[in-house]
Structures are given as structure tokens and as C-alpha cells.
Nucleic acid binder design. Sequence first.
DNA 1: GCCAACGTTGGC
DNA 2: GCCAACGTTGGC
Length: 155
Amino acid sequence: MKKPPRHWLMKTEPSVYSIDDLARDGRTAWEGVRNYQARNFMRDQMRPDDRVLIYHSNAAPPGVVGLARVCSAAYPDPTALDPASHYYDSRSRIDHPIWFLVDVCFEEKFSRLISLAEMRADSALTGMALLKKGQRLSVMPVAPAHFARIIELQS
DNA sequence: GCCAACGTTGGC
DNA sequence: GCCAACGTTGGC
């Protein structure tokens, strides 16, 4: 049986929810993911204690800003059921949820941001899914060696 | 099932 | 603000 990946990257727009928000909250429900592939990673493969790189997208500059851990099993995203939510999806039902999430717990904020440009320029990160052209997934697995390399760049 | 139109993501 | 890339929708 295939061993599941245990290292991830999760994107967030800092104007919506930043690493500083996560540091303040300590723990948050990673709500609002509305892409099936990203959902499947959370629902089917993530486990508590999996490690997570937090990435700021739509930022200047975009890049990895810190570390977190998965700290719950997957469960239905309650915002999909809330008509007042920006993330509401009328197809989702209590007994037939469409969207899932996990809780994410803050671990550390990097001493400096590792920018997308720096990552692209680093030959040790060649092949990372994040760096592929047209890559838009907001939740994706990261190879352990790439995960370690990003931490090394930061320290 | 095909595929054009449309909406979204996200870098620049 | 622009636009490339991609996912989704819906007509046929």
C-alpha cells in the first residue's frame, strides 16, 4: 500500500487570512477550499501531525511564510452550508456535504519570506508542483526533500 | 461526449 | 489592471 504524503503546502491570501492571523488564532478551520483536487487531498490524505508550509498568494511578493500542522481529521466545511457565507454552496447538504476541510495549527513564522522567485531560482527545488506553469491548486503535496530545503533556506 | 463560453486564480 | 492557464458549466 502506498504511503501517503505527509508534507503539504497550503495557499492563503494574506489580505484574507495571513500567517499573522494564524499565529494569533493558534488554530483555524481551513475553510473555503472549492476545488475538488484540493478537497480530495484534505479529505482523503491529510492526517493529524502532517506538516504544512503556509504560502501567501496574491501578495507582494508571494512566497512561503511559515510552518503549521494539520491538527484534525477532515470534516465537512460548515461555510458551504451557510447561506450568509461567501463560501456557500447550495448543492451541499448536511447529509450530503460536498466540501471538506481540516484544522490547521500554527507552528512558526519564518524569520524571512521565501519568495516564489527565490524558489524558482533554487535548483534543489526543481520539479516542485508549486513552480509548475499554470499551477493553481491551493492545497498540494510537497516532497520531503523540498520541504526540508525550504526550511533550510529560511534558517 | 464535445467544446465554446465563462469564471477564477494568481503572477506580474 | 492585465492576462495566461485552468476548471466548470451548459448547449447541442
